[in-house]
């Protein structure tokens, strides 16, 4: 899980071009949107593509989005659950 979260942080920083943020600056449970890291709806789309590209995961139910994308940990848990279910 730790390894996956570290990889996710690096991918998020790169994909979203977060120039002032280093991967290690992102907390495991830090909210990614709004008051947390400050990401917005365009970033959510970028993360959806990231999950598809790097982990082969498609978000079937868009309503799950806020729950899955809450933090790096929730995304990592979603990926792990998805990979286990495979």
């Amino acid at each position: 899980m730790e390894k996956l979260m570290a990889a996710l942080k690096a991918q998020i920083v790169e994909q979203l071009n977060l120039q002032e943020v280093k991967p290690e600056d992102i907390g495991d449970d830090q909210p990614l949107f709004k008051d947390g890291l400050g990401l917005d709806s365009i970033d959510a789309l970028e993360i959806i593509v990231l999950l598809q590209q790097h982990y082969g995961i498609r978000i079937a139910n868009p309503e799950q989005g806020p729950e899955i994308f809450h933090s790096v940990r929730t995304i990592a848990e979603f990926i792990t659950a998805h990979q286990t279910a495979k």
Binding site: Q15, I42, L45, E46, V49
Partner: peptide
């Protein structure tokens, strides 16, 4: 496939 929105916008 899998085109990101930022560059397009």
């Amino acid at each position: 496939e899998m085109l990101t929105p930022t560059a397009f916008i």
